[in-house]
Amino acid sequence: MGDGRLVIDGVSKRYGEVVALDALSFEVRAGELFGFVGSNGAGKTTAMRIVLGVLAADAGEVRYDGVPLDLAMRRRIGYMPEERGLYPRMKVAEQLGYLAQLHGLGPVAARRAVANWIERLGVADRRDDEVQKLSLGNQQRVQLAAALVHDPAVLVLDEPFSGLDPVAVDVMSEVLRERRAAGVPVVFSSHQLELVERLCDRVGIVRAGRMVACGPVEQLRAGGRGLLVVDAPQAGADWAGGLDGVRVRGREGSATLLELAEGVDDQAVLRAAMATGPVREFRHRRPSLVELFRDVVSNSDATPGAAAPHTGAETGTSAGLVEPTSTASSESTVTPSGGRSWPRRRMPR
C-alpha cells in the first residue's frame, strides 16, 4: 500500500490459439518513466489495453498502489490508445472537457484544466475547431491533452511519439519528464529506441508476450554482450578471422568490431592486433539499446525466461526522480544468473 506503483502481475491473454501475453509481469514505480519496447505483435498494446480494462485478461492482475485496478481507479489513468481516437466532429475544448468530466472532474475544474493543457500543448487557438479539421500533428497534441487533462495518477501511453514532428517530440518528452517529476508512474511504448534510451529510467523488452529483458537502460547495456573495437590501421582485412572464439561483426573506418565468445582473453586479441603494426584504439563498447533489441528480438531461439520478478525488485530503490545513470545501481532483472550473455541464455521450458 501507498507506494504508488503500477504492477502488472502474471498477465496472460490468448486469442483462440494465439498466445498474445504469456504471464507478463513488470512494474512501474512512482515517478518512473518506463519504456515498453518490442517488435510489432509482441503484445505491448494488448498489455496496455488490459491495464485499462478495455480488454479482460485470462489470468493475472494489474495493481496500483497494492490494490487491483477497478473502474474508479482506472479513471485516474491517463491513456493514449495506439489507434488514436477522438470524436471527429466535436470541438477541441468541448471534447477535452467532456473527457475530463467522464474521468471525474467537475465542470469548472474541467474547463480550467482544458484551458491549461491546450495552452501548454499549443492548440489553444484551435479550441473551437472540430477535431477532424486539425492537422494530424495537432490531433496528436489533442490526444495527449485527452490523456493528461484529468491530472492522472498513472500514465499509460501507447506509441505516444509516433507521427510527431521534432518540436512535438520535445514537448511530449518534456511533459513526460514533468509527470515523472510529479511522482506519476509513466509507461509508454515506442519503436524509437534512441528516444526510449534517452528518456526512460527503465526499459522492458517484450517478445512473444513475455518480458525478455527489464531493467535500467545502463544496466541492460552493461549486461549485454558488448563489442571490442580495435583500430589497427596496418592490419589486413581478416587479421582477426583466425583467432579462437572471436567473430568479426563489422568495420567502422579502419577499426574492426569484434565479438568475443565467453572466456576469451581480450589481451590475446590485443597481442594479435599489435603483431600487425600500431594499434590506435582498443576499447570495449557497450551495446546500444538498438543493438540489444535486435539481439533479443532477432534471436529466435533465445527462449526468454527472465521476466521481471517485481517481488525481487521491491527492495526500496529511491527510483523516481533521479537520473537514469544513478538508478543503474538498482537491480536489473535481465541477468539473474549474473551471466553476460543473456540474449543467448537458454532456459528449459
Partner: peptide, 18 residues
C-alpha cells in the same frame, strides 16, 4: 514524489495548480 502522487484529482481546485 510519493506524496505528490496522491490523487490530485480529488481536489478540483488543486487540479490545475500542478
Amino acid at each position: 514524489a510519493d506524496a505528490a502522487m496522491t490523487d490530485p484529482v480529488t481536489d478540483d481546485s488543486a487540479t490545475p495548480a500542478t
